[in-house]
Amino acid sequence: MQNEPNKPDHLVVVDTLEKRYTKGGVPVFSDISFSIDRGEIVCMIGHSGCGKSTILNILAGLESASSGQVSINGHTIRGPGLDRGVVFQGHALMPWLTVEQNVAMAIRSRHPGMQRGDVKNMTEHYLGLVSLKEAMHKRPSELSGGMRQRVGIARAFSTTPELLLMDEPFGALDALTRGVIQDELLNICAQTHQTVFMITHDIDEAILLADRLLLMSSGPNAHIAEVVQNPLPKERSRAEIHHQKGYSDLRNHIMDFLVQKLNLKEPKNN
């Protein structure tokens, strides 16, 4: 794996991260090093419990690593900040606020002192990106799961973060809804050249969205077992992708990897 921290193209550099919950015990994961270029979408795939969420939370600054460090733009991160936007798995919208107020809260945090009217325009712009302008005055409890997750995405984008972090953002959605939002997300990322680090357990989603895939071995003491560059052209679309050359090979490769790792974990019968 190539890891050149001084190359200016790297927006994010993750350097030998390790996390252990008990002193001297087996770490959840160790020796996690990778980098993310500007405008790149990197997906992490791996079995449940291997520490993906923990890695993402460390990148977000919400958790701390036992050792190793993460830097963005050459600065080591010390906590959460507006330079990173997070789309939470459980949407994490404030149920007492309307959709508009949820997004406006993020915009006001990003632009303190912005005029009321400007905040409103900006809120409408970002809700428009996820086609939710009509639902602006509704509360999260009145929305479907897919709509809530879209508000979460609009909120994350509205702070124009350098790095967008997403932890299985569509895990709880049905396949159709998921597809629609994936297309939307791909569109917005292409327009804004957004840098993204995301976690998924859906192989098709990973191949559609990711420029590069990090395959995690199973825990405990999980590692990055393999880094796969997506051979498909950057302009991918959900409608055509499975007819494209290289798609099946890539899919089979990842599938084999996941199944093989799963078998390794199961106890052997004598």
Binding site: P80, L82, F88, A92, M94, S109, T159
Partner: peptide, 24 residues
């Protein structure tokens, strides 16, 4: 999660109290 949102938005303690903790 709500407190995590407050942290990623870098809310001051007063805004966190007023916008998140009290209404919640």
């Amino acid at each position: 999660e709500w407190l995590d949102v407050a942290r990623t938005l870098e809310l001051s303690w007063a805004r966190r109290l007023w916008l998140i903790i009290l209404p919640a």
